[in-house]
Design a binder for these strands. Structure first.
Length: 219
DNA sequence: ATCCCGAGGG
DNA sequence: CCCTCTGGAT
């Protein structure tokens, strides 16, 4: 027996009001990692796991001065890389991942960061979040939706989704929000998460989205 | 103590 | 699902 009724999705009209509000608040929202190539954004994004972009931007100039291309990074050793990225945390895993990613790029992709989700997912240290950052901010493609800690938190507070798993949240966001704005909206949600909708004590009293937010004053 | 533009393995 | 890897800021 087929399930007779679908639950109504999150109200698309309310969602679009929030989209407009975010555009008004953060028309300039963009990726705040510093990079000069798709490769450098890929590496910076791998390094950004569980740390702030400010911290990543403190180590990447030194890293990219010597190892700013796939060929150069692929030829490096863990011992050379680890001290440079140490302050970003998880530095042994991250060193292994960025070296491994550089080597896969050389071996399988002619040293060019690929432009598809499936190909990006073959790189060590790269899952959907990192792949979506590269596709969106290095290549300008709206292939998916970046779901990081901020996007996850805001999506739940704004009731864009009730899911807890990032991949399910991404699916809901893609169904609900206009595709041509996925990348920009990701940045805008992150900016709002940093500036107003804090993890611990969100500033609902000064939030322009509060009229549209089911969680306003309740967190 | 909790959080930060996570990923991989059990 | 859970856990671990890891450091710095608040």
């Amino acid at each position: 027996m087929a399930r007779p009724v679908r639950v109504k999705k999150s109200d698309p009209t309310r969602a679009l009001a929030i989209v407009d509000g975010l555009e008004e608040l953060y028309p300039e929202a963009h990726c705040e990692l510093t990079f000069e190539s798709p490769f450098q954004l890929l590496i910076a994004t791998i390094l950004s796991a569980q740390t702030t972009d400010v911290r990543v931007n403190m180590v990447t100039p030194k890293l990219f001065a010597k190892y700013g291309t796939p060929a150069k990074l692929a030829a490096a050793t863990n011992k050379e890389i680890e001290p440079i990225i140490q302050s970003t945390g998880f530095f042994r895993n991250k060193a292994k991942n960025i070296l491994g990613a550089a080597r896969v790029l050389m071996d399988d992709f002619d040293g060019v960061v690929p432009r598809t989700m499936d190909e990006l997912l073959t790189l060590p240290g790269v899952a959907r979040k990192t792949a979506n950052v590269v596709l969106g901010s290095a290549y300008g493609l709206n292939e998916g939706f970046v779901v990081d800690t901020h996007v996850m938190r805001l999506s739940q507070r704004l009731r864009f989704t009730k899911q807890l798993e990032p991949v399910k949240i991404e699916r809901d966001l893609c169904e609900l929000l206009p595709r041509d704005k996925w990348t920009k909206l990701g940045h805008q949600l992150i900016w709002h998460g940093r500036r107003v909708c804090f993890a611990r004590k969100p500033a609902c009293h000064e939030c322009a989205l509060a009229p549209h937010c089911p969680s306003a004053g309740k967190v």
